[in-house]
Amino acid sequence: MKVAKLSCKQSSVLSEKKELGSLSLVESIKLKMHAKMCTACKSLSIDSKLIDQAVFKILEQRKEQKMSLTSAQREKILQALG
C-alpha cells in the first residue's frame, strides 16, 4: 500500500494538513495518488470526515448547554478568595 512514496501514515497526516489549509501542490498530488490506490486509507478518510462533522455538531450543541456549579464547588471557590 506504499504508493507514490507516501505511506498510509504520512497520507493520514497530510489529510489533516490539507484540512487545516496548507498543502503544497506536490503534497496534494501525492495524496490524491495514494488515496486512489489505497482502499484502507479511503475507509479512514470517510470515517475522518464523519468524525469531524459529528465532533463539530457536538461542540455546537455544547454552546447552548447550561451547566451548574454545585454548592460544594461554590464553597470551594469562595474559600479560595481567602
Binding site: M1, K2, C8, K9, C41, L44, D47, L50, I51, A54
Partner: peptide, 28 residues
Amino acid sequence: GVFSKVQDSLWGNTEKHLLDNSEFNEIL
C-alpha cells in the same frame, strides 16, 4: 507506516442517521 490490518469504515452509508443518534453522540 502502512496499515497493518484492513481498515473497515465504521459506518458505511449510515452517516446521516448516525449524526442524529443520541447514543452515538453521547459516546463520541
